[in-house]
Design a protein around this nucleic acid. Sequence first.
DNA 1: TTGCTCCTCACGTCACGTGAGGTGGC
DNA 2: TTGCTCCTCACGTCACGTGAGGTGGC
Lengths: 262, 262
Amino acid sequence: MRTRLAIGDFSRMTLLSVKALRHYHDVGLLVPAEVDPASGYRFYQPSQVGDAQVIRRLRDLGMPLDEVKQVLATADVETRHTVIAAHLRRMEGELAAAQATVASLRSLLDGPTSPVTVEHRSVSATLAVGITDRVSAADLDEWWDGAFRELGQGGPRGALYPADFFQLGTGDVIAYIPVAEAVPTRGRVRVIEVPAADLAVAVHAGGLGDVDRTYGALGVYVAEREIGLDGPIREHYLVSALDTADESRHRTEVCWPVFRVA
Amino acid sequence: MRTRLAIGDFSRMTLLSVKALRHYHDVGLLVPAEVDPASGYRFYQPSQVGDAQVIRRLRDLGMPLDEVKQVLATADVETRHTVIAAHLRRMEGELAAAQATVASLRSLLDGPTSPVTVEHRSVSATLAVGITDRVSAADLDEWWDGAFRELGQGGPRGALYPADFFQLGTGDVIAYIPVAEAVPTRGRVRVIEVPAADLAVAVHAGGLGDVDRTYGALGVYVAEREIGLDGPIREHYLVSALDTADESRHRTEVCWPVFRVA
DNA sequence: TTGCTCCTCACGTCACGTGAGGTGGC
DNA sequence: TTGCTCCTCACGTCACGTGAGGTGGC
């Protein structure tokens, strides 16, 4: 019989804890070559060390077990590389976002927040091409990027968020670009009507990581005047990441639809 | 009465989900200014928006709620900055480690692993100065660094790990440096005796992120020869991160104490 | 026979998310 | 009165860690 490794030996060889190894067995990620039917003892083969080493590294990278399973199921080295490279890019993006967050945190703790000017504006109904999807807050950034890339150039970008989008953390979001007249449907793109509304509008300067400052200011403004919210919130992306990488130049109008003030 | 904000309004203003806000109330991180005793309705004040914005950013950075609570409890802006900067440095370190892991993963997937040479060696008992602590595998790197900085220069560095350290994920680890004769105790440093042993030794070339490859090879070698493990595993840090930042130049002897071969 | 290694539950952790089922105010 | 907002359980998620209590082989 070939060399059989008890779980403790295998643990020492792979630097994976026994608890982790049992868990990987339970979920079918790394199944022992042999399990004694009487005692339940797990026995591994030396040839399983390689898989264990790959698993350990992917877990160190924070990859979920489901994805790790997929990587191991892929025999092709090229595909494996692609999946791993994609994961690393995601991590690099997260660090860049983290650095931006730190900067924003510093400005929040340092200085008094610059006052926000709120303007009232009545807009009439407008025709637009739009993409509608049920989106969760966590996936919003990625969805936003994809949607506007599909909508293409050609007009001021805007989006509608249900008033309870933030309560629920999810909801039907519409990304749109106004058009003069109806155009044929293509892909996810449909013609929609952006409804008329009375809006309380504040312009947010800077990246969207900071947009809660403008939401906060707008919220205080609206609450102090006891104006009710009426319909979905809209954002107008005057200058966005699609225009320039320089976040300090980004401009977003945040628009809360309100009851007409008496 | 001042402006009272229901949880939904506050959620819209802070971009925190209602579920998150209730959770922050439960754990005492962000307590509503007022709670209606009859209905249980939570009401927030506009002045609480600032704290909420700080919380959101710190959570985006992956800071645990306990630490967030400490940051908020610290009125001093300087101290806050220090805590946050320390957190950012941790994240940067993690990214660097992630990049190293990706490199090691590539080499693991690409090529056949270079063969490891195993040498037998009998060592006699040695006097040493050492630091002993109960360490968990997750904290090992940080502990290792602190221990050897306290032990100082002056001899070849080594460490002893209980044979079941990896099974349990924790155990009493000893970092040591051999000495010719006993010296006075200072700080955590004690004089110890490193016991005599018969060792199966393999030299690991490169950073310790890859050391599982050498553990694996050593494990296969020992298992195939049906040699038993006898006492704590030792590592000798011939060239380490304390000597050079160039990981390719690092050398570590991994030593498994074995039963004398008949 | 002792001690070591292994086993299986069952529950805890962390920061919420996901319903279920129900209530108060306009 | 209807619908909206809010409430409280209770349980799920993810990847294990933490005991408790017990068993097999040298």
